[in-house]
Design a protein around this nucleic acid. Sequence first.
DNA 1: CATGAATGAGGGTTCATTCAT
DNA 2: TATGAATGAACCCTCATTCAT
Lengths: 208, 208, 208, 208
Amino acid sequence: MRRANTDAAKDLRRSQFLEAGLQEFFERGFSFAKMENIARSAGVSKGTLYLYFDSKEELFMEIVSTVAIPRVEMLESIMQEVGDFELALDRLVNALPLMIRDSKLPMIAKVLIGDAFAFPEVVRRYRQEVIERALAALTLLVQRGVDAGKLEADNPQNVARLMIAPVIFSAIWTVVFEPADKQKLDLGSLFATHKSMLLKALKVKEAR
Amino acid sequence: MRRANTDAAKDLRRSQFLEAGLQEFFERGFSFAKMENIARSAGVSKGTLYLYFDSKEELFMEIVSTVAIPRVEMLESIMQEVGDFELALDRLVNALPLMIRDSKLPMIAKVLIGDAFAFPEVVRRYRQEVIERALAALTLLVQRGVDAGKLEADNPQNVARLMIAPVIFSAIWTVVFEPADKQKLDLGSLFATHKSMLLKALKVKEAR
Amino acid sequence: MRRANTDAAKDLRRSQFLEAGLQEFFERGFSFAKMENIARSAGVSKGTLYLYFDSKEELFMEIVSTVAIPRVEMLESIMQEVGDFELALDRLVNALPLMIRDSKLPMIAKVLIGDAFAFPEVVRRYRQEVIERALAALTLLVQRGVDAGKLEADNPQNVARLMIAPVIFSAIWTVVFEPADKQKLDLGSLFATHKSMLLKALKVKEAR
Amino acid sequence: MRRANTDAAKDLRRSQFLEAGLQEFFERGFSFAKMENIARSAGVSKGTLYLYFDSKEELFMEIVSTVAIPRVEMLESIMQEVGDFELALDRLVNALPLMIRDSKLPMIAKVLIGDAFAFPEVVRRYRQEVIERALAALTLLVQRGVDAGKLEADNPQNVARLMIAPVIFSAIWTVVFEPADKQKLDLGSLFATHKSMLLKALKVKEAR
DNA sequence: CATGAATGAGGGTTCATTCAT
DNA sequence: TATGAATGAACCCTCATTCAT
């Protein structure tokens, strides 16, 4: 393999390792994942991996940190920029299928769940920095809608959880159960139903 | 260890192994799980385990088969016996927190997700014999409500999925994210909100 | 299994174990042989075997001692009773195919060869008590023929070895190489040729 | 241990493993042989062995294939190049003691016999590619002698077997029975007697 | 005496990690 | 930096032996 002499080249290589690592951890789980496979699929030899990461565990942690976390900011910005609940929901409903089909979210979820107890610290950080933040943003959105008299909700935090639940469900489904099946889950349709049920359930008042 | 000479004693011991195995697989995932640990925690030596199961893999499969599958029948009977949607939903909402807190469902889910790719056949069977059956029972319930003019739903199958989603969410949450937290998720409250939102979303007509 | 209460019953059972043991050691070699298999094929349980033999090794040794050794006496008697070389040879040639097809000799040989180094003492005893005695008897026979001017042989001990060689060859052949083959070695024909060549090679003078 | 980086170094190491393996299999038989011992006696760690062979079984098979088989060609060339029976026999008789004392033949024979049933395929191949070929070459030599009127033999195939028998006998003897003895078998003398008896038995006509 | 459940030492194999080249 | 050969700890599984019933 060509040597990575410049910092830029090293960063590129590093990110290739993270990518290949995620794929391997996703497919096999932490303990079945082989450093050899990760190296090969990134086009280098086993030894090279150890020039970039001290151990399999460190590689794993860095994958979770760097690949997983950035996504939330997008969510938060959607929530915060948009004052109107229905509009926000609309955006959300459009964004979620993409998050599930095109992002690494389901892979990360699968990996975290599978190896949760081997890496409690990683899981704790993930919950705080990703899930809690997403839930908080949603809760706030609902709360604001209630305060503005635009919607009805007894328990905004529960509502936020119930809004999120189909995302988790879909992520798990696509990653774990779908592969063994012929037809794919129609995420667009599922989230459209989700949206329409939410609007009715919250008795959202028209916003114009 | 006391000897299991009668068939009854052997069955008891077998089920202790399944229990101990589930716990170990749950805590560590298949490949980190050690037969030695399972044996010790069931109070026997490693060798004894092999009198009951041919291999770690077979033990794993039997755990999934015997511990996990029976649960669905309860669900199906709830769905089928009760004609009225609201009543059925009521029962369901009462049953689900118990299924999550008191059954092995979340443990099985965690184990299956973590080692999904190592045991595709197990996952496939689980999907067919547990998840699909549960979804089908729910879909049918909703469809009957629609046919009877008691509720509104464009896509009963999606509705069924969205009814299930919070169960998956809660199962994952309690098992993966909650342990690192101090306070527990209030499942009773969550499913009460779920129920009330569903009733509004489906515009359930009062049944009396 | 019926209990062996009398001494006679115990002896019978003991010999069944030796029989079953030889078969198992023959088929698998000492270290692949399983006490369980031996017990089962003698129709008892594993534990019972240990009432008769302290260990696998002891069972093995006793098999070699009791099953193998008696044969030589027959050989010696053939050699000693008959003064005339051609007559003795004739008897020998008739007896050998039977020894190979119908006795345990090839099995014992195979077992001893395979586990020679694990049981040097057993091998040493076998050599002394079986092979050396057989060779000595043959050597003596040849020597007497030479002394009597009935045959020519420079080195009676070598002649004895060369007389024995086809027996070893046939024993090994039938046990090791023949099973994988369709047709059996025609031992009668082989030893007839052996006899006729020996007679010519030793220029045996007609004895009448 | 010094690293084997070049192909040549790897081939060398591989052959050291085969050598060490043969020794271990020879001394203990397949199932008592320990990979650890083979590795240590070749000066590497257990893991290194697995860089070269996938399993103990594969190592075993490769030993039989590579160490054992080449020898036959020498035999065949002796038989085929030399038209004259007495000359061929002469060469043979000179070559055989060397084959027994200096080659791996007796070791291979001992190993094959001991583990014959565990590796029937290996034994079958060995019979076909080594023994049958050797017997065929010898049979042909005898047949040609008979056709040329140079010697008498009713059954050339049996004669070939009887010519070979002392080789097997000697191989087994040196390897199994001799070690426990003080003095060695004088192979030179034994095969000289063998030759002289053969010449008389076949009434070989002088070739000049 | 007979049984077979229980034990645990032993060995084949894997793979994260190291390090000579 | 990059390589991949070498290491050895770890773990699954077997089976001779023991012993409670």
